[in-house]
Amino acid sequence: MKNINLQGESSIVPELIFLRCVACLAVVMIHAAETSLEAYADTAASVELLSIHLLRMAMMFGTPTFIFLSEFLLAKSYPDNLPTGFFEKRVKLLLIPYVSMSVIYAVAWNTADFSLSAIGVSVVKNIFIGDSTVYFILIVFQFYFLHLFLHRHLQKWKKKIVLTASLAVNMLYLGFFNFVTPFRFFPHSSYIWYRFSWIPFFGWVFYFILGFYCGKHYQYIKMQLVRYRKWIFAAPAVTLALVLFFRYMNFPATPSSKRIDIIFYTTAMIFALMYLFRDAKTIHPLIMTISNYSFGIFLTHKLFMHFFLPIPQLNIYFYTIVVFLSSIGLSIAVTFLVNKHRWGKYIVGRIYSFKGNNQQETPERERNPKYGT
């Protein structure tokens, strides 16, 4: 396959295409590893289970990276104000697919107890407290509003102070849920405690602030990445080693991206990937395809994994690869086929396009000054 030429596309930020692709693959691998751990919990050797578990931890930068990407694109695309119709468009292309997939996941997860009451409860939980794989969209919408209210102030405030304050808030918030035992004041309090550590924006605010300033000062950031490239290359290995060590020591016990140490690991991975793919002139079609289908993959991949059964002929490593590749392929195929219908994008999300500035998800009427942007 011939690489896609990016030359002449001045509006394209090539490293973000790579970041979106890598983050998408990381999220899928997390769930592929989880599927394998569940399927082989009683048959695989302890060292095999440990290695798959550590692989899962190494992929935890995926979801936070999407927070960074979302705000980076907003800050870079709209330096002054959000365009007219911004929220209307996001409701159509993000919130409606979120609701659609929340219903689909509720049905799929209740096949054993296929009753209207069970499905209804799951639908309510999925939509309002993010009790499904697509919870990420609730977080993104919080940051859309935060961007609307804060972007003018963030341009005036001192960057170092804001970044430090957001890091402190993020760490304190996650630290509370990482190390404090859940209060048991009422039934299901542990479940509510667990979900509340995920959904409010406080647990992700540093990625938002980092994305804002990187988007606003994109060229400056690129120069700094080159200047500190030795540190940029070393940081992912060091921070990952710390993540794996602390997880092995069960400190904290939370095996998710909502850990304090993941903040530093994710930041290191973002900058390392941005450095590696800066000023790319071409992109492999497979990378572009995964990036373009990333939203559909994100929404649907866990649905296919839910129905995977153990394959006795495969060990846990090959099974993980099969689940990983199959779910990506099925997600792309379903997203492609469903988008053949004009309402398909409201179910499985739309397919991004390389044309023009679509990487930034903005149609021509939003980019053109005559429309008041």
Rank of each mutant, 00 (worst) to 15 (best):
123 V>S: 01
100 S>Y: 06
129 I>L: 09
133 T>Q: 06
117 S>N: 14
148 L>Q: 06
89 K>T: 02
143 F>P: 00
120 G>M: 11
134 V>Y: 05
97 P>S: 08
123 V>C: 04
127 I>V: 14
111 T>N: 06
122 S>D: 05
140 V>K: 04
111 T>I: 15
117 S>W: 14
89 K>N: 06
147 H>C: 07
103 V>A: 07
144 Y>K: 01
104 I>F: 15
131 D>G: 10
91 V>G: 11
90 R>D: 00
100 S>F: 08
104 I>W: 05
122 S>Y: 02
141 F>R: 04
113 D>P: 03
130 G>V: 11
109 W>P: 00
89 K>E: 08
89 K>D: 06
93 L>Q: 12
140 V>H: 09
97 P>L: 04
132 S>W: 03
98 Y>R: 05
131 D>A: 15
136 F>N: 03
98 Y>F: 15
102 S>D: 13
104 I>E: 01
111 T>D: 01
117 S>A: 10
94 L>D: 06
103 V>R: 05
126 N>P: 07
97 P>F: 06
114 F>K: 12
136 F>M: 10
101 M>L: 11
107 V>A: 12
132 S>G: 11
115 S>V: 07
123 V>L: 00
102 S>L: 09
90 R>L: 00
122 S>P: 02
85 G>N: 05
100 S>G: 07
93 L>C: 04
114 F>N: 12
102 S>R: 13
144 Y>Q: 10
131 D>C: 13
96 I>H: 01
107 V>L: 15
96 I>Y: 05
89 K>G: 00
147 H>M: 10
106 A>E: 04
135 Y>D: 07
86 F>R: 00
100 S>A: 15
113 D>C: 11
146 L>Q: 03
129 I>S: 04
133 T>N: 07
102 S>W: 08
118 A>Q: 13
123 V>K: 03
147 H>R: 06
114 F>R: 13
139 I>R: 04
122 S>R: 02
143 F>V: 09
119 I>H: 00
115 S>L: 11
95 L>K: 00
92 K>P: 00
122 S>H: 03
115 S>M: 06
129 I>Q: 11
125 K>Q: 14
137 I>T: 02
113 D>W: 05
96 I>P: 01
91 V>Y: 10
110 N>M: 13
106 A>Q: 03
99 V>T: 08
132 S>A: 14
91 V>E: 08
101 M>K: 04
122 S>W: 02
115 S>T: 15
95 L>Q: 07
130 G>K: 08
85 G>T: 01
106 A>I: 10
142 Q>T: 14
132 S>N: 12
97 P>E: 04
121 V>R: 11
143 F>E: 01
120 G>T: 05
126 N>I: 09
108 A>R: 02
113 D>F: 12
130 G>A: 13
92 K>H: 12
130 G>F: 10
147 H>A: 08
116 L>S: 08
112 A>N: 14
90 R>Q: 04
134 V>L: 03
110 N>P: 12
121 V>T: 11
94 L>M: 13
101 M>F: 07
87 F>R: 02
112 A>D: 15
96 I>S: 03
128 F>L: 14
135 Y>I: 08
118 A>M: 12
127 I>K: 00
131 D>W: 11
147 H>W: 06
